[in-house]
Every structure is written in structure tokens, then in C-alpha cells.
């Protein structure tokens, strides 16, 4: 394969190979051929670069926050490597975030493949309500992280409800509470307090007629009628 594609058929064949390469769908021998060609062909390199941007879209929507302990482990490994490779300069200092992560790692519990902890046997009424939301036909899942906390929200418009779950959320500062807001067209509506347990976990069902999202802010103990601080977690339903 030369650096040019005089023949349209050959170009089409090359295009297929570049696509398969971007999808990692070639065996080793084919991959080596494509790599050799890419090294000499700017046109195919341009195609490859643009298709790699496209491939990013394939996994959009599959987000799944890793367990908090992984963050600690990754940052530790990177720090160790940085220290080893340059003993005198650029020695990495633990960041504030990493310190928070270390504290939480001690409490990190069993891996759950996805962001939502499954209900336990002997479920309460609240658990059953939560299961109803999770199993609703139109349920959609949103997840994000804040500092070391993992936040998952499942919203079902047909159930007029959402479920919010946090893991690894630090305790609210003394005299404060985390408060959940249901973001309705009329403005934020109080949806209860989020009180993480010793492991930083909490889960709550939110009744949310016509809500367009959910937010969490830090409020004076007991909560407020309206948010008095900006939400630090905000989920917009799409």
C-alpha cells in the first residue's frame, strides 16, 4: 500500500480498513498493515483523526463512575511514578482532592457495576417505591461525580418521580444539611434532606411532577424553603 490512492476501489478498501482500525476491529496482522499505511499517508491520517472523534459518540451515554477507591489508587500510582522518574523536580504533592479520596477509600464498599445500589430483600415501602421508579419503562439514568462523591439520578416522567443516590458524600459541615431540590418550571421545590450514612451513602425517592431536574445544595440544618446557596450538584433531565 503506497501513500496514494489512485484507484477509487483501493481508496474504498483503505477507508474500510481505517474504519475497522478506529473500531479496533482488526486482527494484529491487519492492524500492522494499516498502521504502516497511516505512517505514510496524510489523507488516511486525516480520515482516521476525524473518525476517532466520531467514535467518541458511540460510548456517550454509557458513563459509569468508578468506585472512589480507584481514584485513590490511580493518583497514588501516578504520584509514585512521577516521584520515581524525576526525583528532584516536579515531585507531586498530594492534592486536596486526593486527601479526601483517601479518607473515603477506607469506607469504600463492594463494587456495584452501575451507579445504583440494588434493593435488599425485605424491602420497605420506600424501597418498593424506588424499585417502581427504577423499573419504569421510561426511566432514564444520569450520573456524575462531585469531589469524591458519585451521584446517580434515575428519573421516570411516567412515575412523576426520581431516585437520587449518592455514594462517598462527605458529612455535611456542622449545622448544615444537604437539601434536595426538584427543579420545576415554577422554581426549586423542597424535596427533602440528603443524609449520608457513615459510608457516605444516601438514597431517596423524589416526587417530581413536571420536574426538569434535580439539584442539591448546602443549607442551614433542617433545610430552607428556597435554596440559599448555589447547588453543587445539578442534574438536568433530557
Amino acid at each position: 500500500m503506497a501513500g496514494k490512492h489512485p484507484d477509487p476501489d483501493e481508496h474504498e478498501e483503505m477507508e474500510s480498513l481505517v474504519v475497522a482500525s478506529v473500531l479496533d476491529a482488526l486482527d494484529r496482522r491487519q492492524q500492522a498493515e494499516v498502521d504502516a499505511h497511516l505512517a505514510t499517508c496524510p489523507r488516511c491520517r486525516t480520515l482516521e483523526a476525524s473518525l476517532r472523534e466520531t467514535a467518541v459518540e458511540i460510548s456517550a451515554g454509557l458513563e459509569s463512575a468508578p468506585p472512589a477507591r480507584l481514584r485513590v489508587s490511580v493518583l497514588d500510582a501516578v504520584r509514585a511514578e512521577a516521584a520515581a522518574s524525576s526525583p528532584t523536580e516536579a515531585r507531586m504533592r498530594p492534592s486536596r482532592r486526593a486527601v479526601i479520596g483517601s479518607a473515603l477509600a477506607l469506607a469504600a464498599s463492594a463494587v456495584v457495576a452501575t451507579g445504583v445500589v440494588l434493593s435488599r430483600p425485605g424491602r420497605s415501602e420506600e424501597d418498593q417505591e424506588i424499585a417502581r421508579v427504577l423499573t419504569a419503562g421510561d426511566a432514564r439514568l444520569y450520573s456524575t461525580t462531585w469531589e469524591s462523591a458519585q451521584v446517580t439520578v434515575v428519573h421516570s416522567a411516567s412515575s412523576a418521580a426520581s431516585v437520587i443516590e449518592v455514594r462517598g458524600l462527605p458529612p455535611a459541615p456542622r449545622g448544615r444539611d444537604y437539601q434536595i431540590w426538584s427543579m420545576s418550571p415554577a422554581g426549586p421545590e423542597d424535596a427533602g434532606l440528603l443524609r449520608p450514612d457513615a459510608d457516605g451513602r444516601a438514597r431517596l425517592r423524589i416526587g417530581s411532577h413536571a420536574a426538569g431536574g434535580t439539584a442539591v445544595s448546602l443549607e442551614p440544618a433542617g433545610g430552607s424553603e428556597q435554596p440559599t446557596t448555589s447547588p453543587f450538584i445539578a442534574v438536568t433531565y433530557s
Binding site: 479526601i100 458529612p171 459541615p173 448544615r176 448546602l218 446557596t229 448555589s230 453543587f232 445539578a234
Partner: peptide, 10 residues
């Protein structure tokens, strides 16, 4: 623990 920032834009 560091408290959440109070005015972090949503």
C-alpha cells in the same frame, strides 16, 4: 472534611 463550596456555579 472540606465543606462544599457555597457558590460553585451549578
Amino acid at each position: 472534611m472540606t465543606p462544599p463550596p457555597e457558590d460553585l456555579a451549578s
